[in-house]
Each structure stands twice: as structure tokens, then as C-alpha cells.
Nucleic acid binder design. Structure first.
Length: 416
RNA sequence: GGACAGUUGGGUGAGUUGGCUGAAACCACACCCCUGCUAAGGGUGCGUACUCGAAAGGGUACCGAGGGUUCGAAUCCCUCACUGUCCGCCA
């Protein structure tokens, strides 16, 4: 959630920032007005309630002394009625305000370039040069067919469209990659955990998926539980409603989990292959940090993800997302895009973001700074998306006959 | 899933014949004093959030969540969630 006090005090500046993200600014005016109304309503309720409470104390004394209480009771009844009314008014303003505030996206950082869509993103640098093939490289689904790595038909039979069945060496490769990624992240200082992959609505709200993006989530019927769309949700919310000691920070966590997304709104996109599935494995990095630590940790996370790709021999590039392409909770994001020779283009394989204090405010993640409790910053990034890494290996390591070689770095993980 | 018990501040844990309790005590933590050497003693402070105030200091809400009774509820009633134990089931 954005800082409403900041919005109140620096309205124009806040508006300019959100405009960069393409927010309809009329909602901000409403927010500002309602925020002022809420303060006033709360104040008048609290004044009445204070009066009621202090008189109520006398009530006990009166009774003990055997004094007549009918007049006092009459006054108290009136006060109670008035206070309750004022309370309801304040509550309804607060509810409305919360409803609106929860769907306002995070403020982007100043370094974020202007732009409306992914076409306006800015390439920062390329790492490794794509190799020249002396044949026409195939797309990964053709290779999957030739090597019998992926059974798309039966995946759909078992579940529905956008589900696939990895088999043979692809299944082994998936497991090897998860281990490889976790080992790399551990070496980079991240602590491995294995969280629940069903989380409740409070957690989904904490990281920003709810209430606005409910349609993207798979929900368990009859339960307040959702399949997580990313391990960012459980990892970040480990500290939901907690106050950390400042000596504990930064907290660096990594986990390999399946992720589940409905992909609502991406009908027709990437329907072939396993680029966009309802279920996919991903190894995630999450950091809970003091605000002054977040830039440094961010660079470290980007480098870690990039180094892993380099070690796998996969050409990739770093892309700074523009305001319009930035996610709801993100203040700044760098995407890592891997080269896919079959598709002849770079495709996202990791996304590393600073959420500033946006998630921390929603999830109430704080730390002790002397006597004060301050909001932490949260960051997350993939290192890496497993399915897309398999795609990248298939396309980059393909031979003319359609067979696929194994990257050197993975051999220790596959030959056992 | 069934039966019983419980859910209080960072931790342990009082308080459940309604008002003197936002909350004893102890531990932990912070600062100070004494002392000096890898101990101990003494003092003070210490829940969270919002809000008024320059500050000192006030106000309101929160004792698992939500609702109810009452002038007044951590304390009484209802619903739900969770934890523990026993039974059942099971990887």
C-alpha cells in the first residue's frame, strides 16, 4: 500500500509518480478527500467516546454510594448512542478508503524510464553472444516432440490446456535445475526454505496479489486458501505482522516451489510449448531489508540471476522496465531475458524487483530502529524460472539432428 | 472427522464473582550507576496502531477473529479460526 500521509502532504509529486505507472488520477483526489474526512470523523468519534468513558467511571462510584443514577444513565445512554453513530460513520469511511487504497499501485522510483508498454523498456546490457547455427534452429516444442521430452496432449488430458507433462530427460533436467539453482542461491547467501504452497487471503493481500488480481489466482473451493502464483508470497509473508530486530536484517531467502497462474488475459499468447503454463516450477529469491540496504541487495540479486545464466552458457540481456510495464507492487524492476534461437528473440526468464515499503506496509513487516518501528523494504526475483530455463537449454543446445546437449554446469547434477 | 482443554505484551505467565488492568510478576532488551575483568548488584525505561500537541503529556482502538449483552467486558453469551491432548484416519 502507498503511504497515504505522503500522498496527503506531497500530492502533486505523488500524482506525477503514479501517472508514470498509468494510474487514473481521479482516484487520488477521492483518496485525499476521504483521508481528510476519515481523520475528522475519527476525531469526533474519539471525543464522544472519551466523554462516555469518563462519565461511565462515575457511574460505578455513584452506585457504590447509593446515589440516584437515573439522570446519569439517561446522559450515558445518549452519549453511547451518539458515539456509536459516529463510530459507524468513521468505520464506513475507513472501509471505503481501504478498498480504494489497496488497488493503488506502488510509486515507481525516479530511475524508472517513462513508457507505456514493454516496447519502451530499456536494454541495459547483453551478456554472452548468441551463437550462429549453420542450420535453422527449431523451436522448443519441435525439439520436445523429437526427443519425447514433453507430452502436451496427456498434460491437457490430466488437467486442462496450458498443462504439460515433462518426461524422460526433461523431467531429470527439471530436477537438476532446481538443485543447481538452489545451490547457487545458497552460495550467494540465501537461506533455503520449503514453504506451504497454499496461502490464505491475508498473505496474498500482503504481497499485493489481492484484492486486485483475484482472477489470476487458483482458489481452493470452500477454503480461504489460494495456490501461490510465486514463492514471493510465502517467503515475504513469513514475517507478516512481525517486528524484526535490526541485527537480523537483511534476511535472504530462497525456495523452489511450483507456481500456479490462471493467465487470465493472456488468451492466445504463447499457447504452444511451455513458455506460459498454469503450473510451473520457479526458484525464487526474497530479501527483507532495511531501506538503506535495498539498492545494494537489488544489484546483488540481479547479478546472481545473471551469473547463473552465464554459467549455463545462456546468452541473455538485462532490461530496465518502464513505468507502464512495471508490476503493481514494484518500485523498480530489471528483467533478465534469455536468448531463444528458435524464436529468434529474447524472452523473460527472471524478474528482479524492489517493492520498497509497499508490501511491508500491507503485510506490516517492521524492524526496530532504536526505539522506533520502521517498515522494511522487500525485494524478490527469480533465480530462475525452471520451465523457461529448460526451453532456453533446448533451443540453445540443440544440434542439427534435434538432439540436445547438456550444459557443462549441469553435468554433475544429471549424471547421478 | 469426534471428545475435552486452551488462545493475554518479544518470551514465560497472573488476571475469568464485569468498573481500581492495556494488563501483575519474572525473563529478555535498552540506557544509567556501582564495580572492574571475561561474574554479580542497584536504578530507570520498555506492547502495537492511529491521533492531538513544539514538547511535556493527552485521546481512541486492540487481551485469537467477528458479533451480542451492559452505563461499563480480557472477564458474561454466540459464531468462526487456530493450538494442545486422546480417539479415528493417513503419506
Amino acid at each position: 500500500m502507498i503511504d497515504l500521509k505522503y500522498l496527503e502532504k506531497n500530492f502533486d509529486e505523488a500524482s506525477a509518480k503514479l501517472a508514470k505507472k498509468g494510474v487514473d488520477l481521479t482516484i487520488l483526489d477521492e483518496l485525499k478527500v476521504q483521508f481528510a474526512m476519515l481523520k475528522e470523523a475519527k476525531q469526533s468519534f474519539e471525543d464522544k467516546r472519551a466523554m462516555q468513558k469518563s462519565l461511565s467511571k462515575e457511574f460505578g462510584a455513584y452506585k457504590a454510594q447509593g446515589k440516584d443514577i437515573t439522570e446519569l444513565k439517561y446522559k450515558l445512554d445518549k452519549l453511547k448512542e451518539a458515539a456509536t453513530l459516529l463510530e459507524q460513520k468513521a468505520n464506513s469511511i475507513e472501509d471505503e478508503l481501504a478498498k480504494k487504497a489497496l488497488v493503488i499501485p506502488n510509486f515507481p522510483y525516479d530511475v524508472v524510464p517513462n513508457g507505456e508498454s514493454e516496447d519502451d523498456n530499456i536494454e541495459i546490457k547483453k551478456i554472452l553472444t548468441p551463437q550462429e547455427f549453420n542450420f535453422t534452429p527449431k523451436e522448443h516444442w519441435e525439439l520436445a516432440e523429437i526427443n519425447s521430452w514433453i507430452d502436451f496432449t496427456r498434460g491437457v488430458k490430466l488437467a486442462k490446456s496450458r498443462f504439460a507433462l515433462l518426461q524422460n530427460r526433461a523431467a531429470k533436467l527439471e530436477r537438476a535445475l532446481i538443485n543447481f539453482f538452489l545451490d547457487k542461491n545458497t552460495k550467494a547467501g540465501f537461506n533455503e526454505v520449503s514453504p506451504p504452497i497454499l496461502n490464505n487471503s491475508k498473505m496474498l493481500q500482503g504481497t499485493g496479489q489481492l484484492p486486485k488480481f483475484e482472477d489470476d489466482l487458483f482458489k481452493i473451493e470452500g477454503e480461504d486458501l489460494y495456490l501461490i502464483p510465486t514463492a514471493e508470497v510465502p517467503l515475504t509473508n513469513i514475517f507478516n505482522d512481525e517486528i524484526l530486530q535490526d541485527s537480523e536484517l537483511p534476511v535472504l531467502l530462497t525456495a523452489a516451489t511450483p507456481c500456479f497462474r490462471k493467465e487470465a488475459g493472456s488468451a492466445g499468447r504463447d499457447t504452444r510449448g511451455i513458455i506460459r503454463q498454469h503450473q510451473f516450477d520457479k526458484v525464487e529469491m526474497v530479501a527483507i531489508v532495511k531501506p538503506e540496504q535495498s539498492d545494494e541487495i537489488f544489484e546483488m540479486m540481479v547479478k546472481n540471476a545473471s551469473d547463473i545464466l552465464t554459467e549455463l552458457g545462456l546468452p541473455h540481456r538485462l532490461v530496465e522496465l518502464c513505468g507502464g510495464d512495471l508490476g503493481f507492487s514494484a518500485a523498480r524492476t530489471i528483467d533478465l531475458e534469455v536468448w531463444l534461437p528458435g524464436q529468434n528473440q529474447y524472452r523473460e526468464i527472471s524478474s528482479v524487483s524492489i517493492m520498497s515499503d509497499f508490501q511491508a506496509r500491507r503485510a506490516k513487516i517492521r524492524y526496530k530502529d532504536g526505539k522506533k518501528n520502521l517498515l522494511t523494504h522487500t525485494l524478490n526475483g527469480s533465480a530462475l524460472a525452471v520451465g523457461r530455463t529448460i526451453v532456453a537449454i533446448m533451443e540453445n543446445y540443440q544440434q542439427e539432428d534435434g538432439t540436445i546437449e547438456t550444459p557443462e554446469a549441469l553435468k554433475p547434477y544429471l549424471n547421478r
